[in-house]
């Protein structure tokens, strides 16, 4: 298995820690004038998303992690797995719930997502930055109010709940920012 020495550490490097794939966020060399050097490393566990810190004695080695980000199309959920496909090779991948748990509320069939593969298995899925979803439930609101002051909760067809302006009605399509979970505009 390929390894990385501390002198190869840099932001974005993917390595294994306790069997889990991790990505370096920040690597700082601590080099006292007369003394052993260390690498102070902030990294993200790509499975849990947690940010952690460790300090490595310089010269230590870590195992490389086979991690790639790839653009895949979301196909469907069969109740147990979420299925994705590479639109060029038509290769299919199935993600377990843990990989999509936080973002299923943004997934619409046919949308392109960024899927992080670890040893060929999806470990996390990033939905498109903006998605278009349909309002399935919201208070009728006041007719003629187009100023957009204030807001009301609206349930979307994927189950997501976002704050929308008062004028948005059931059956309308809205554009939502998935990073912030915020309404952007009505879809034309």
């Amino acid at each position: 298995m390929a390894t990385y020495s501390t002198n190869e550490f840099k932001g974005g490097l993917k390595f294994l820690m306790d069997g889990q794939p991790c990505s370096i966020i920040e690597n700082t060399i601590v080099q006292p004038g007369k003394g052993q050097a260390f690498n102070r490393v902030r990294y993200r566990n790509l499975v849990t998303g947690r940010v952690l810190e460790k300090t490595f004695k310089s010269g230590e080695k870590v195992d490389a992690a086979d991690v790639v980000d790839t653009d895949l199309q979301y196909l469907y959920n069969d109740g147990e797995y979420w299925h994705f496909m590479d639109p060029e090779s038509f290769e299919q991948y199935q993600a377990e719930e843990a990989a999509v748990a936080d973002i299923t509320k943004w997934l619409t069939e046919q949308d392109m997502c960024t899927v992080t593969l670890f040893n060929g298995q999806p470990i996390s899925v990033t939905p498109p930055k903006q998605v278009t979803l349909e309002v399935v439930e919201t208070d009728p609101g006041l007719k003629g109010d187009t100023a957009g002051t204030g807001g009301k909760p609206a349930t979307l067809n994927t189950g997501a709940v976002v704050q929308v302006p008062l004028f948005v009605q059931i059956g309308e399509k809205v554009i939502v920012n998935t990073e912030k979970g915020e309404y952007v505009s009505r879809a034309k």
Binding site: Q36, F38, R40, L52, E53, K54, T55, F56, K57, G59, E60
Partner: peptide
């Protein structure tokens, strides 16, 4: 944060 690569009895380090 956890230190990696230092022997348990390496007092100087």
């Amino acid at each position: 944060p956890e230190i990696v690569g230092v022997d348990e009895d390496d007092k100087a380090l």
